[in-house]
Nucleic acid binder design. Structure first.
Lengths: 119, 119
DNA sequence: GCATCACTTAGCTCTTGCGCTAAGTATTGC
DNA sequence: GCAATACTTAGCGCAAGAGCTAAGTGATGC
């Protein structure tokens, strides 16, 4: 069960990093950092059809980096700060490996990744 | 020229986050955190054909997260710690926006992303 | 109550990502 | 010098990502 926990963690990271790999999505996150906004407000700066833009919003929501709520005909997007902790955690684990501080959890993470984590 | 600098930074982030979005590649980085290794050593834990694995190595090298050097018939891979700073920088900029500390650079980054950064 | 607005769904393209096999090249070891 | 080792190149197949248009749905405003 700790293994399935690691797998969940890994798939979560897949989604988060994938979400962050697109400049449109990073820009949306930057904008939402300043506070909630509606889809059309968010879409305005981009030279992109709305359905295309919506896919980015769905991707961000799927990865947990934002959540949205529809009231009337307007959907409002809010950043999900907690989700960024997963990235920070991965970065610290990585740094810990460099520093040779391979305590039990970090060893576990490294080994799990090397063995069963792929695909 | 500061604009083209931001564009470079953005494309760099695209590559880095994309590289980190794959569990095989994260596992390779975790392994390399403990020290340099050859391609075949790195490939061993994975149930994957060597050319497939090589693509991951090339991707990592292309994103700057590792560099490699061939001596004789063996190619040795080394982690490039500096490159992780770009991720940290992005995370801090993001956090800074949450905290309302939108000083000049961060405002610039946010606006550049919202306007011209996409695609 | 009819038009407008703010999405939403459906379905199409094109490119890229991630895996494979087969065959090639360049070192190294006996 | 011949075989084995350690990649490397070439090329294929399938799935997913990122864009588009066209048409649909459900609230809001006059």
């Amino acid at each position: 069960m700790i293994l399935s926990l690691m797998e969940q963690y890994s798939e979560q990271l897949n989604g988060i990093f994938q979400a962050l790999a697109d400049p449109t999505r990073r820009a949306v996150l930057a904008r939402l950092g300043a506070g909630p906004a509606s889809i059309s407000d968010l879409a305005k700066p981009f030279d992109m059809a709305l359905p295309s833009f919506m896919k980015h919003i769905h991707f961000l929501e799927g990865s947990g980096l934002i959540h949205t709520r529809k009231q009337g005909r307007v959907r409002t997007c809010v950043i999900e700060k907690k989700q960024f902790a997963a990235v920070e955690a991965w970065l610290s684990a990585q740094r810990a490996l460099w520093e040779g501080r391979t305590d039990r959890l970090e060893q576990f993470v490294a080994k799990a990744q090397a063995k069963g984590d792929s695909q």
